[in-house]
């Protein structure tokens, strides 16, 4: 079975220069070249993009939802990293 199994690829499309590639979905293909060709037909039938990235799904390492606390919580109490934390008098301009 596995012999006839096309790999799963994640597809990222850049809609225009100046914008980042954005994840749009996934598809199956025999190899990366074919994944690009398939992505063109599946995800850009209406001029949605000017550039495509494909990545084998099993090559993506993702953080686990269980790690959300240790990974992201520490930044929650660092309000001083945001500009609005600082009181600057209204009279001071351009800041």
């Amino acid at each position: 079975m596995n012999k006839n199994h096309w790999k799963l690829y994640e597809v990222f499309v850049r809609s225009k220069n100046g914008l980042a590639h954005k994840h749009v979905g996934s598809l199956h293909a025999a190899d990366a070249d074919m994944a690009i060709k398939n992505a063109r037909d599946v995800y850009t039938r209406r001029s949605e993009g000017i550039s495509i990235w494909v990545v084998p799904s099993d090559q993506i390492t993702a953080s686990s939802p269980d790690e959300k606390e240790p990974l992201f919580a520490p930044s929650d109490d660092k309000v001083y990293r945001h500009p609005t934390f600082y009181d600057i008098p209204d009279d001071v301009e351009h800041m």
């Binding site: 012999k3 006839n4 096309w6 074919m34």
Partner: peptide
Amino acid sequence: REAALAYAEKEA
């Protein structure tokens, strides 16, 4: 599907 896989393997 089989031919596409065989071709992909050959290319690799």
